[in-house]
Design a protein around this nucleic acid. Structure first.
Length: 445
RNA sequence: GGCUCCAUCGUCUAAUGGCUAGGACGCUAGAUUUUCACUCUGGCAAUAGGGGUUCGAUUCCCCUUGGAGCUACCA
């Protein structure tokens, strides 16, 4: 069996697009599964629009997703360089060859034009089957270089895929038409044609190609919004590909084992934030307390939440975990554990919907006293629940009337984990302090 | 406009000639409950239309319709 060599060839004229990330993923999965090589090549022949910062964004995005590559601009390889801007000599030689053999001619200015005999070009696409296009549909001859030292996309792609011994070209459907031109160039140069597979496009809600205008397309923005890389990877993999069964969740390694081009869909796939969120939530729920803490750190920092007690922070994060869909949500939700918790919630929030201010204040006072009676050793979630519920029921104070204000007094939030859990995390001293603060909010009512 | 590709619930998709078209997200009703979330139970929701082929079409063929991509001295 031949060793496959696949590549992803982004153009550093913008941040890493989620669609490019998915294309990269599919390529990488196939390479890993077949024991082949995955290569990154930067197509920066557009000197005006190509920027170093975009190159860095692209590589960082792919790394964040957990993809690895065998050859690329950052690590080199046997078939480099991996930036087209550094490969001018190779293109010049190819262009000169075409000119010498009469397969291309000089066009307007310094341009070089490939001479095309009118014909029907047929190729087999691994996803779509046979595709036929007549050269008349695009006017036959076409420009392949601005000058002998300034190649255009079509020429550079073909020359590089040959030089880098690419066996399978897996790319977006937007390149389907380009494939015809690429095959024409390959034939003129005497190259073999690699195997082609065109992936369905990622679509926006209006079913148009996902673009900056229609939605967020930058992969790393999703990282910054609190998505986990394993969730993004899983979601992207299932967009336009499926394992032919009901399975929804895959690790990277599981994808390597399960992936195949025959499971690739032909129709475009809408990039749905709802589904992404649910996948992210699933992965967020699976994190261990330590992993959760580690993943949350940058977001806590950004939210300005610090705590001297890391164990307390870890407990708070775990307590909030079931209701978080993003790391950003989690970071803001856990605000109540911060050393500098302001406690500046609205007084009205303390009052349960079926209660009133006077009752609430009285019950908070009783609660404060009751808490004082409970020993430090009994300040655990289970014991607190047992003791307090028993007491509330005995005194007939009503669970909602009592527990709602307790919870708000401790967190200052409309939604939070239960009061027993929060109280046990904060500890007796802090609970007393916050209960007092809550009472003070009512003034001399 | 031309060329090309595509078409199953709102979305991602399974079923490829043969049970009441399955799952997930979403939506929704309920259970639980101090809030939200979690969890559990139930419900709504699709083969674009029309012709064929066949004993039988989601599935194969044709037409229509609809959608998308490409149509640069961008990639």
């Amino acid at each position: 069996m031949i060793n496959i060599r696949v590549r992803v060839a982004p153009s550093p004229t913008g941040n890493l697009h989620v669609g490019t990330a998915r294309t990269a993923l599919f390529n990488e999965l196939l390479a890993r599964q077949q024991g082949g090589k995955f290569i990154i090549r930067l197509e920066d022949t557009d000197k005006e629009r190509s920027k170093k910062e975009f190159e860095e964004n692209i590589l960082e995005g792919l790394r964040w997703l957990g993809l690895t590559w065998d050859e690329g601009p950052d690590i080199g390889g046997d078939f480099g360089p991996y930036r087209q801007s550094e490969r001018t000599a190779v293109y010049t030689a190819a262009l000169q060859q075409l000119l010498d053999q009469g397969k291309a001619k000089k066009g307007e200015g310094e341009t070089i034009v490939l001479l095309v005999e009118p014909q029907e070009v047929v190729f087999k696409d691994e996803v779509r089957g046979e595709v036929k296009v007549h050269t008349d549909s695009f006017g036959g001859n076409f420009i392949i270089a601005r000058s002998l030292t300034d190649p255009l996309f079509h020429l550079a792609v073909v020359v590089d895929d040959e030089a880098m011994k690419i066996t399978h070209v897996i790319r977006g459907e937007d390149h389907l038409h380009n494939t015809v031109k690429h095959i024409l160039i390959q034939r003129a140069l005497g190259y073999a044609t690699p195997s082609y597979a065109h992936l369905p496009l990622l679509l926006d809600e209006k079913r148009a190609k996902l673009s900056k205008r229609s939605g967020e397309t930058s992969l790393l923005v999703y990282r910054d919004r609190g998505y986990l890389p394993e969730a993004m990877l899983n979601y992207l993999a299932l967009l336009g590909w499926n394992p032919k069964n009901d399975r929804e969740f895959f690790s990277h390694q599981e994808l390597v084992e399960a992936f195949n081009l025959s499971g690739v869909q032909k129709a475009g796939a809408v990039f749905s934030m709802h589904k992404l969120d649910s996948v992210n939530k699933y992965y967020l729920q699976k994190l261990s307390p330590q992993e959760l803490c580690l993943a949350s750190l940058p977001f806590l920092e950004k939210a300005g939440i610090t705590t001297s007690d890391t164990q307390r922070l870890e407990q708070a994060l775990t307590a909030e975990q079931p209701r978080a869909a993003h790391l950003t949500d989690l970071a803001s939700a856990v605000e109540w554990v911060a050393d500098s918790w302001p406690g500046n919630y609205e007084t009205a929030l303390l009052i349960w919907k079926k209660s009133d201010a006077a009752t609430t204040k009285t019950l908070l006072e009783k609660m404060t006293a009751k808490m004082q009676e409970i020993s430090e050793e009994k300040f655990t979630e289970n014991d607190l629940e047992k003791i307090l519920l028993e007491w509330i029921d005995e005194e007939d104070m009503g669970r909602g009337d009592t527990l709602w204000p307790l919870r708000v007094a401790l967190t200052g939030r409309k939604h939070s984990p239960g009061p027993f859990e929060v109280a046990s995390i904060l500890g007796k001293g802090e609970v007393a302090r916050r209960l007092l603060l809550a009472q003070e909010k009512f003034g001399s009512l």
